[in-house]
Design a protein around this nucleic acid. Sequence first.
DNA 1: AAGAAAATGTAGCACTTGCTACATAATAAA
DNA 2: TTTATTATGTAGCAAGTGCTACATTTTCTT
Lengths: 181, 181
Amino acid sequence: MMKKGELRKQELQEKMSIHILTNGLQSVSLRNLAKAVGTSDRMLLHYYQDKEELMTEVLTQISDNLITILEQARTVAIPFNQLVPHLYQLIKDPVVKPYIQLWLELIARASKNEEPYFSIAKQIGDSFINYCSELIQADEEEKEKLAPLTFIIIEGIAMLDAIDFESNIEKALDGLSGFQK
Amino acid sequence: MMKKGELRKQELQEKMSIHILTNGLQSVSLRNLAKAVGTSDRMLLHYYQDKEELMTEVLTQISDNLITILEQARTVAIPFNQLVPHLYQLIKDPVVKPYIQLWLELIARASKNEEPYFSIAKQIGDSFINYCSELIQADEEEKEKLAPLTFIIIEGIAMLDAIDFESNIEKALDGLSGFQK
DNA sequence: AAGAAAATGTAGCACTTGCTACATAATAAA
DNA sequence: TTTATTATGTAGCAAGTGCTACATTTTCTT
């Protein structure tokens, strides 16, 4: 059973997840977070050893939440051709979009091997490739190739979306549908 | 002809470009930049009205430099199938890679509509799609679709590369080559 | 050479950052 | 009920941030 302090920590962490999901990583400071969730920086450092530990736990929780959301939005396996547009719809969903935006920030930091972001990003990447793999209708050997390809395309789309290149995304999807196995 | 001050500014800007390309956006502060290029924050604010103006000019220059590099590395037009691996090689080039890393940081900020990053990112995006278009061997109608698709895939690859997912990149490229028009 | 304009130095302000020291109040264990 | 543990408050530090005020030197123009 959970001690009272543990429970409070959980509650704060939940709220911090929401705040980070809404406001991104850049504006994250102990004081900011504390104010947003109704406590003090002092207390945050009571629950977590330091900022890095805090971010690790919160980001891990956020990533768990995303996985849950994705699992709930799951369909039956569909061929690659249809999967990409389907996932594109998914990442445009207002519930999912904040996660994608955060993902972009995570990648930017991960690309400089900054911890804990690098490790967490790798973990999320693995999860997403698995997720793609489960959704692709193909034999194992093809899945092995198409899952990473799907991941890449969705990532790329997310980036174009970040700079309001929707029309280009549409064109690309159009171009993609012209391909066949 | 250029005044002496203009010349000095140009010189500093050149050095700042290199510094930002090497160290990224996150550690950019006036004092940091100044120290790196051998001047004072005071002087930077003499040459530029404020930090935003400075960043706009420096990032624009960096983007111009990238375009120059890309133009120099240009080949004859090749079909989409070959273009993607070719561009993958290109972004792995040690000369180009820092630009890609910076690009990821730019996107992260652009995705929150943060200026001047958003505008500059859009501009670079346009340039790159044009660049792809010039390199694709296809008729105009197809180029219109394949250039954005190429852009998306290269972006996606850049992201996977940021989290050391090379093996997945290889698999994806393998998967891509199985497709035909 | 005299005056105007540009370049540079030195200090500082008001703010934010992660984190700590030192305290007291509330709760749990004995 | 005493005692040990946990929770929370208040203050502050040392470092960093963009930017400004005020001064002086250097350079260019006439």
